[in-house]
Amino acid sequence: NKASVVANQLIPINTALTLIMMKAEVVTPMGIPAEEIPKLVGMQVNRAVPLGTTLMPDMVKNYE
């Protein structure tokens, strides 16, 4: 099973992601793959992301 990106803390709306906000975890359903973490740094979330939430592509602005 591949790990996904999971919020390590509450991430407020429009916050630019940093490494300490994210962790890799095997979850179902899968979200953004953990190997994308370096690419996510500096990208903004378009909603508040609660602690423990799996990051999905539609939660990150301009994620492709």
Rank of each mutant, 00 (worst) to 15 (best):
A34Y: 14
M21N: 12
E25Y: 05
G31E: 02
I32T: 02
Y63W: 10
M56F: 04
T15I: 05
L51G: 11
K39G: 04
G31L: 01
L10T: 14
V26A: 10
M30P: 11
L51K: 14
Y63N: 07
M56L: 08
T28H: 09
I11P: 00
K61E: 10
N8V: 11
K23E: 08
P57S: 13
V41S: 10
D58V: 06
E64Q: 10
I13D: 10
V41K: 12
E25T: 09
T54A: 06
T54W: 02
V5I: 11
L10H: 07
N62S: 14
G31F: 02
G42E: 09
Q9R: 08
M43V: 10
V27C: 02
R47A: 13
G31N: 01
A16I: 07
N14Q: 14
E25K: 06
V60S: 00
M43H: 11
V45I: 13
R47C: 03
M30N: 05
E35P: 04
D58M: 09
P38A: 15
Q9F: 11
I20A: 06
I11K: 00
N1E: 04
K23N: 14
K39P: 05
K2F: 06
E36M: 04
V6T: 13
V26S: 11
N1K: 14
P38H: 14
I20Q: 15
N8H: 14
N14H: 12
M21H: 05
I13R: 08
P38R: 08
Q44W: 10
V5N: 01
L17G: 00
M56D: 07
V27W: 03
N62R: 08
L40Y: 03
S4R: 03
T18V: 04
V60T: 02
K23W: 05
Q44I: 07
A7R: 01
V27E: 05
I13K: 13
R47G: 10
A48N: 08
A7N: 02
M30A: 12
P50H: 10
P29C: 03
P12F: 11
E64T: 11
M22H: 00
T18D: 07
S4Y: 04
G42F: 04
P29S: 11
N1L: 14
V45R: 00
I37V: 07
P38T: 15
P12N: 12
T28R: 06
M30R: 07
V45H: 00
I20V: 14
V5R: 00
M43I: 08
G42V: 02
E64H: 11
Y63D: 06
P33V: 11
Y63L: 11
V26G: 03
T15W: 11
T28W: 15
A7D: 01
Q9D: 15
M59F: 11
P29M: 09
L17C: 02
V6H: 04
M43L: 12
E35H: 14
V45Q: 00
N1I: 12
K39H: 13
V6E: 02
Y63I: 04
L55C: 02
M22R: 00
M22L: 09
M59H: 05
A3K: 06
P33K: 08
V27A: 14
E35C: 02
T53P: 00
T18R: 15
T54V: 13
V41F: 03
A7F: 01
I11C: 02
P33R: 13
K2S: 10
D58P: 07
I13F: 08
P33A: 09
I32Y: 03
T54K: 05
L55G: 00
G42W: 04
E35T: 10
K39L: 15
E25G: 07
Y63C: 03
N1V: 09
N1S: 14
P38V: 05
A16R: 07
V27K: 05
I13E: 08
I11Y: 01
V45D: 01
P38C: 02
I37P: 00
N14S: 07
T54I: 05
K23M: 13
A34H: 12
E35L: 11
I11T: 01
A16C: 03
G42L: 08
I11W: 01
A3D: 12
N8F: 13
L10S: 07
M30D: 09
N1D: 15
G52V: 01
T15F: 04
V26T: 15
N14T: 07
A16L: 09
I13S: 05
G52R: 10
L51N: 09
L10C: 02
P12A: 10
P12M: 07
V6G: 02
S4G: 09
L55K: 01
P12E: 15
P12K: 09
K39R: 10
L10K: 13
V26H: 13
